[in-house]
């Protein structure tokens, strides 16, 4: 084979590979949480545990309660999540007259577009799918826990029984069959909204000005968006 011929084949081959390489789908999934609708009932946490066999004491999703109060000085913030909010919340021991605002905030994996957990995994056991979902291959995970350290949202946990890292998958097994994640399905108030980025009901929410992501300064580009939360949530 002549040199010129070899180079031609090489260029043609590379070009073909580039064309064949799957482009990132614009139909990625996103998740929207309207905090003003959440009543802190914990049904989402229970449903998640049942659907995904989440071990006791570990959470793929949890609910936090924020109580902002003041004694005449600058705001104080009280945050709690007893047992991940799975069994609801007790009455808070703060004088109601001093409370400025109080609300519930469901948390889960942000399925970041630039996930630090994926970046640090030494063996490629965690990756981001074409649909934008961050998954873990349990049969490949070596259990080094580096991804847990890298996640700024505390969304990953170590499964002490299986000795691997686990996390929310947005119920990948359900969404790929056209269903919604278990937590979204059971939410009695519609505080959790799930869909494709191009879906009309998602687009409508994203057009609003008070939409927020958590810890934007870390440049992780989360795909979970929040409505009606204060500055104190991060």
């Amino acid at each position: 084979m002549k040199r010129r011929e070899f180079i031609r084949i090489l260029v043609a081959g590379s070009a073909t590979l580039l064309v064949l390489k799957p482009v990132k789908s614009s139909d990625i999934f996103v998740y929207v949480i309207d905090s003003s609708r959440c009543i802190g009932c914990g049904k989402c946490v229970k449903a998640c545990r049942a659907e995904n066999h989440v071990p006791e004491g570990k959470y793929r999703t949890w609910v936090e309660r924020y109580v902002v109060y003041s004694n005449g000085e600058l705001e104080n913030v009280y945050v709690e999540s007893p047992m991940g909010g799975e069994f609801g919340f007790e009455e808070v021991d703060i004088d109601t007259e001093r409370i400025l605002r109080a609300y519930f905030v469901p948390k889960l994996c942000m399925h970041c577009d630039k996930p630090p957990c994926v970046k640090v995994c030494p063996v490629n056991a965690t990756w981001i799918t074409e649909e934008g979902v961050v998954l873990v291959d349990k049969s490949h995970c070596i259990g080094c826990k580096y991804c847990i350290q890298a996640c700024p949202y505390g969304a990953r946990y170590f499964n002490h029984h299986e000795k691997v890292v686990d996390k929310c998958t947005w119920c990948y097994h359900r969404i790929m069959r056209g269903m919604r994640p278990a937590c979204v399905t059971v939410c009695p108030t519609g505080a959790r909204v799930f869909g494709k980025l191009t879906d009309e009901h998602i687009q409508d929410v994203l057009k609003e000005r008070d939409i927020r992501i958590l810890k934007p300064e870390l440049n992780t580009r989360p795909k979970v968006f929040y409505k009606n939360i204060g500055w104190e949530v991060w």
Partner: peptide
């Protein structure tokens, strides 16, 4: 490191399927 791993028997995966963006790899 090996003692800390959940699955030390898979440690060699670092050389088989390395993720070069990971400092650990």
């Amino acid at each position: 490191l090996l003692l800390d791993l959940g699955h030390p028997q898979r440690a060699f995966e670092i050389y088989i399927t390395p993720n070069f963006s990971s400092v650990m790899a």
